[in-house]
């Protein structure tokens, strides 16, 4: 096992722009091994763009992104694919392949990258689906037949297919009912503790921030305003952060978290 706490993703001076519109300007951020990093910010501040830049779906307009010590954009494609295999990505709307059933969805990377036979891959896929909390009968369902919560779980199972070292989640609890969202938060913590991956979590869900995140990064004014543990972030003197964490919803989530005293709070 590698040292917990070392930075596995290092972003320095990231610049992203769409035409005249500058999204990021000189953004710095680290993702450390084994942590769950929550990324928050107002709508349109470029949280998803940041995620897409790290996983290589968008070419940055400036700055460097080093992943496992290597700059993804400069690697030849074969080497780059090998690094990308160590990522798991859960897209905002699941992005399950609509013409494959769930176990085929999860088995696809196992067949393509790990070279397993179809039967082996589907067997392992069913284990991953069960790990993500889906009932065994769901393995042969098509994505169109699933509820929102099941789609998120199936997408998580697919993201976990190759035992990634970093998991990128784009609003995983958006559109889930509070019970489903809380279950998803617990699942994420359980899997992180069991599998030891790092998580980059874009979210608007204050309960998720309080219950599962080790560190929280706030994006505002085109860069990271602060990236630290929750108490430090809460006390940062900034109007947006005050409104966000000390508004009615923020207070409620904070109290709820203190009440349950999340297992994560004591850990750090």
């Amino acid at each position: 096992m590698n040292q917990r706490g070392e930075a596995i993703v290092e972003i320095r001076g990231l610049v992203n722009r769409f035409g005249q519109h500058v999204v990021h300007d000189g953004l710095d951020l680290d993702i450390r091994r084994g942590e769950i990093l929550g990324v928050v910010g107002g709508s349109g501040t470029g949280k998803s763009v940041l995620l897409r830049s790290i996983v290589g779906l968008k070419r940055p307009d400036g700055g460097t992104i080093r992943v496992f010590g290597e700059e993804l954009q400069r690697l030849p494609s074969a080497q780059r694919a090998r690094v990308e295999r160590r990522f798991g990505v859960l897209f905002q709307r699941g992005a399950l392949f609509s013409s494959l059933n769930l176990q085929e969805n999860v088995a696809l990377p196992l067949i393509e990258h790990a070279g397993l036979s179809q039967a082996d891959a589907e067997r392992l896929a069913r284990v991953k689906l069960a790990l993500a909390g889906l009932p065994p009968g769901a393995a042969r369902l098509n994505p169109a037949e699933l509820s929102g919560g099941m789609i998120k779980r199936a997408a998580l199972a697919r993201a976990l297919a190759l035992d990634p070292e970093v998991l990128f989640l784009d609003e995983p609890t958006a559109g889930l009912d509070p019970i489903g969202a809380a279950a998803f938060d617990r699942l994420l913590l359980t899997l992180r503790d069991a599998l030891g991956f790092s998580v980059f979590l874009v979210t608007h869900d204050l309960d998720t921030l309080y219950s599962s995140c080790d560190r929280v990064a706030v994006i505002a004014n085109k860069r990271i305003l602060v990236a630290d543990s929750l108490p430090v972030v809460e006390d940062t003197d900034d109007p947006w952060i005050r409104d966000y964490f000390h508004g009615p919803r923020g207070r409620a989530a904070s109290q709820a978290a203190r009440h349950h005293s999340s297992p994560n709070g004591e850990e750090r």
Binding site: E122, V127, L131, P136, R140, D193, A194, G196
Partner: peptide
Amino acid sequence: LPAERQALLRAVADASRTPLSAP
């Protein structure tokens, strides 16, 4: 066995407890 290994084994064991349907 290190704690995270035990946690991994337990998680997978729990996931495999429900019998997987035969194709």
